[in-house]
Write a protein that binds this DNA or RNA. Structure first.
Lengths: 170, 170
DNA sequence: CTTGACTCTGTACTCGGCTACAGGGTTTAT
DNA sequence: ATAAACCCTGTAGCCGAGTACAGAGTCAAG
């Protein structure tokens, strides 16, 4: 399970030529995920040994680092693919990428703002519970009552069809 | 598609007795989602008319407001179900709920911290691109090079099996 | 020459939170 | 009496980002 210790080859052929498991170990990205990335155009199809094993050059690690970093920065795999694709097609992706990054920055700011606001609500909720949640006769001060008078009891009642909260978390 | 205007009955029987469509309209939660909530134990099974139609009392709106608010505060439907279930089972959920809320608060803070950090990285990335992305001879300053020397080129190389970044978004 | 670790392909499954549909029955307005 | 608008159940699909597995081939050490 955990880091199956040192084993057979970490550079058996020429150094700098990697099999998928080695790439996985070095990048920390599972073998299946690597094939998944390849299927989905995030990694180029590597060359193969006579028997069909994938053979990677070391640059794949940079690509993977880029992918991971981009993910961490909030890009979806589709966006990452687009950036890579554009770059390789010669069409300078810079402006477009910058656009994406700028949008992402704004979204990020918005999210942080939302989160802080939710944080405030949460903390307020907690306090309210501390104050009135212990009154005898009701179980928790929520569910039974009007579930605390948070905003939103107004905010609802628009948008009849779903699709606004979805899985955008938070 | 959008708010199918005023229609037939919004309180045909006793006032305060609602059919599922009315609940949907009043709560802003789709009919299918309401049935989904019921299936998943977030709403009690309502009584039925002779012909099998669900009949809700107005308190369902409070429950739904609670669910929505809890969602917005970052609770999963499972957690919400647990809270409701505990409350109804008489086992005072307060402590547990507070625990959940406290954990959520901490997570939220952590997330905000992460986000701000990512924001910084992103902005730095953007700047780097502005500085060196335009040099002639390479396409974008990323992908071709070492993709910008962000941290993490160290952070990788541990954790051989996936399961650490997962879909926790970020 | 066998064992065990590795690799291949392909398909299916996971999770959360719904949404969409098919194929009915019911209620209400005209 | 009929059509529109509603409701029912049940099943299937979607999104994103992988994970899991079956069934087969390959490679290196002992």
């Amino acid at each position: 399970m955990a880091i199956r210790s040192a084993r057979t080859g970490d550079g058996p052929e020429r150094p700098g030529v990697l099999k998928i498991g080695e790439v996985s170990r070095l990048s920390g990205i599972g073998v299946e995920a690597l094939r998944f990335y390849e299927r989905n155009g995030l990694l180029d199809r590597p060359s193969r040994t006579g028997s069909g094993y994938r053979v990677y050059g070391p640059e794949v690690l940079d690509r993977l680092a880029f992918i991971k970093q981009a993910q961490v920065l909030g890009f979806s795999l589709d966006e990452i693919k687009k950036i890579i694709g554009d770059a390789r097609a010669g069409r300078s992706p810079c402006d477009e990428v910058r656009e994406i990054v700028r949008r992402r920055l704004e979204e990020l700011d918005e999210r942080v703002r939302e989160m802080l606001s939710y944080r405030k609500d949460l903390a307020a909720t907690l306090e309210e519970w501390d104050e009135r949640g212990r009154a005898p006769g009701h179980i928790c001060g929520l569910i039974e009552g009007a579930e605390i008078d948070h905003p939103m009891k107004q905010a609802r009642r628009a948008q009849p069809k779903g699709k606004r909260l979805k899985n955008r978390e938070a």
